[in-house]
Design a protein around this nucleic acid. Sequence first.
DNA 1: GGACCGCAAACTGTTGACAGATGACAGCCC
DNA 2: GGGCTGTCATCTGTCAACAGTTTGCGGTCC
Lengths: 265, 265
Amino acid sequence: MEDAAAEPAQAEAPSALDIVRTRSLASLVAQELERMILSGALPAGERLNEQALAARLGVSRGPVREAVRGLERSGLVVAVRNQGSYVRTVSAAEALEIYDLRAAITGLACAELARRRDAAGLSALRGLVRGMDAARRAGDARAYYALNLDFHDALLRQGAGPRTQRLHADLGNELHLFRRRALVEAENMRASNAEHATILRAIAAGDPAAARAAGEAHIAGGKRRFRDTGPDKTEQEETDHAGTHDPPPGAGGPRRARRRARDPG
Amino acid sequence: MEDAAAEPAQAEAPSALDIVRTRSLASLVAQELERMILSGALPAGERLNEQALAARLGVSRGPVREAVRGLERSGLVVAVRNQGSYVRTVSAAEALEIYDLRAAITGLACAELARRRDAAGLSALRGLVRGMDAARRAGDARAYYALNLDFHDALLRQGAGPRTQRLHADLGNELHLFRRRALVEAENMRASNAEHATILRAIAAGDPAAARAAGEAHIAGGKRRFRDTGPDKTEQEETDHAGTHDPPPGAGGPRRARRRARDPG
DNA sequence: GGACCGCAAACTGTTGACAGATGACAGCCC
DNA sequence: GGGCTGTCATCTGTCAACAGTTTGCGGTCC
């Protein structure tokens, strides 16, 4: 009450002024770049032109550089001195490795959930599974995908600490870098959601070991489905011999396409 | 061979010129700051004065800012707009959470090692365990600590991919932020090294599940030993009520001690 | 005709400077 | 005397400019 009285009354719109007051331009640029990368607007391997980005976002190069440095540290871009920054390329091997990490993390969260046995959280998870089942029957892969994301987010929000959640999100982002592929197919939806149900059963039973195993198996299943889908044709050559994620020497993408600005038209 | 011929002949000293040519100032500053933070020269909660750091390192504020942004993204510092950056404070709860993550990761690496059963790697690990045993008998905690680090590094280098290794290193760094405490005591050395031996036995037996369990149990043991040592008296109050890692409002550290530069002496 | 060399443009790395904000101190009013 | 307000110093956020390097293109020599 006292705090509310001290605050200005119009604390309803969190946009505009509050944004400017709390977030720096660099952080906003970083957020925007991350969004662009994850949405595919900046595809993997793409070169990031600092001054072009600065001009596009209406800021100076300083904030852009800071943002890129942050994204570099978090693994979304790689930088080469005097040459530029590139959206990171994730190799198939790295993608599989990330799956393993996510499996372990999901397992931890599931085990913790089985220990806690929170009724409200469990029913929320059950609702998501029901929703996914409906989406599957309706053949709505898009809705299933969104609900699946919600489910895993909820799993981690309830069963893991903030550090683990952040790690899980980061790994998910990196996984997105491995080529945008068809989300889920119908048969995969069925198998995937069955595994969700298995997880919930183990949690409801209060069996941490079983819950952990079920959570790990689910991600391992996703890994298997991902692997069975196979690397795209264009990806195939480079996944075999190269460790990638170093665009300039390795992947045959951007090095050739640089500097097209000189050509007047 | 061809590459060597193309390179300049005096490629013996990797320092000086090569460093400048390949690494940017910002990355070097980041490396130095990370070193200072992990060595304790910049204690947790300490405020980072950009221009002081820039002057101290002999560079401009730009690279320092970029470095700090990178460290912020990797979780070593936290930044508040118009106020500055602070070395992150890791709460006891976060430290325990990090232990869980490391346990899971170590378990993954041990399981993979058991699958591979690489003789050379295994004997190297055995050598490290023998070395730790000797250090323990000699009561040389410092040597034991170093060898222990080597052991876990070797475990991950052999049994995990690059992404996992980087994650493991980052988590280790964050753990270092939780107050510099007495490394290991004699009895802990004994228990710790016994667990090392258990891990190696499971790996040698080619039993991934047992190796994984042993690896996880070892880190869990470390977590238990860490917890039993108890939070230091100075840490105790803040670990209970606060989620920390937000120095300015939460921890009663830097906010008061700021801006002492005005006083002439 | 091919390969080597030099030139120029573009971009990154770095610096210095300016504007805005924050926090503290001193003075003033009640 | 206590609380509040105005002012000031310091620092961060941002920008614009300079310097160095890489790269692509054109010319020239063999």
